[in-house]
Design a protein around this nucleic acid. Structure first.
Lengths: 216, 216
DNA sequence: GTGCAAAATTGCAGTCGGTGCAAGAATGGG
DNA sequence: CCCATTCTTGCACCGACTGCAATTTTGCAC
């Protein structure tokens, strides 16, 4: 909002920077796919990306980070504004589903060989754990946004700050559980379905499971 | 079941082993509390624990692991058998709450200076994440147990293997979301409430949130 | 295009985490 | 008391990562 972010031609410097960054990521994923992540050294990656090993660490603070990549910041997503504006008429679960779907889209926006990254994360719990750490920041943002939405939806809960806080956190954790559910299905499956599809399906299953009154 | 696990006097060898293991953990927590986790080297820890640096790695595969400690194996817990035997009369959520409560009790059974560990985990997201990664194995165990319970509770779902699998996974993730919710409160709080208490409270809040029909 | 300041790249030397190996010490059991 | 097993330890080594200072590249004004 405060920064229009024009970025028509980011300038040579910035373009080269992005190219280098991308080259590193491509290189490490490529090498890891061929020789195994543990066997890949920074020296090899640097050589493949045509930079010095020292420069590698100017771009990523660790070997893992080069694989993990960036995480989107939730408040900056357009879907967040939509979620907040959806008002009380929409189910909070449905809204959450769409929001997390959009977030996962932004997460995978990078046109990198996502499949290789997927395979790496599947095989290396350490990487997975590190990525989960990023989810932590994400969780805080999500909780805040849910609180905002709840406050506009329900005037009574808006008055009780403690209850609002607890319910927001609980809802965000439920949402993230759905994401993890979808993520598992996505990682385990060979089909081409997107992470977002899986998330939406997880939410519908969630609603069904949590609403036993609607079942016979 | 298959192993009665007598352990009256585990023998000198085993006793020394446990002592060394504990000494390492005490040493690293102590040093980390005084100089900061990052400043602590394996050499210092080993010196404080009166062992060689090489021996450190005979006990823990990494510096982080020495802080994180072990995780209980769910199937071995007595509470698991109770959970499975509770039958269809008990709400699956209530049962899950008790089961996870028991599991967290087994987790914190170690009479180590738990407070220091808590402080460390609070300050170091990396450690926190790594501990969460253990939850992954835990999640698989939990899913299997839930599936078993569901199959005995509901004959119709027992017939549909795919549905059983999906619902079990979803329920286990919801349960783990509650655990994370409780874990956060536990880590962030200064009060002396146990992790188990927080988990039980999380489940009651969960049931309340997920049952909108019971509210006005 | 020339000159200059800011930013990026690089080499180097060094610290620390972590592993494989083989020799030596402690333990348990007969 | 002896032997097999297990545990400890020192050593040599690799790879991740950092600080620093020299060098190169880019942005920009003139």
């Amino acid at each position: 909002m405060s920064e229009p972010e024009p970025e028509p031609t980011p300038g040579l410097r910035e373009r080269k920077r992005r190219a280098t960054r991308s080259a590193i990521q491509v290189a490490i994923l490529d090498l890891a796919a061929r020789h195994g992540y543990d066997q890949v050294t920074i020296d090899e990656v640097s050589a493949a990306a045509d930079i010095s090993p020292r420069t590698f660490f100017n771009y990523f603070s660790s070997k893992d980070d080069a694989v993990i990549g960036d995480f989107p910041s939730l408040p900056e997503l357009p879907a967040t504004a939509e979620f907040l504006a959806a008002g009380p008429r929409e189910s909070i679960y449905a809204g959450l589903g769409r929001l997390l779907d959009a977030a996962s889209g932004a997460l995978a926006e990078e046109r990198m060989p996502e499949e290789r990254r997927r395979a790496l994360l599947r095989e290396h719990p350490g990487l997975f754990a590190k990525r989960m750490a990023y989810l932590h920041r994400f969780e805080d943002e999500l909780t805040g946004i849910i609180a905002e939405r709840l406050a506009t939806d329900d005037a009574t809960i808006a008055g009780d700050a403690a209850a609002l806080q607890r319910r927001s956190r609980l809802l965000s954790l439920i949402g993230l559980a759905a994401v993890r559910y979808a993520y598992r299905a996505w990682i385990g499956a060979e089909d081409g379905r997107s992470l977002g599809d899986n998330i939406l399906e997880a939410f519908s299953e969630l609603e069904e499971t949590l609403a036993p009154t609607s079942r016979s």
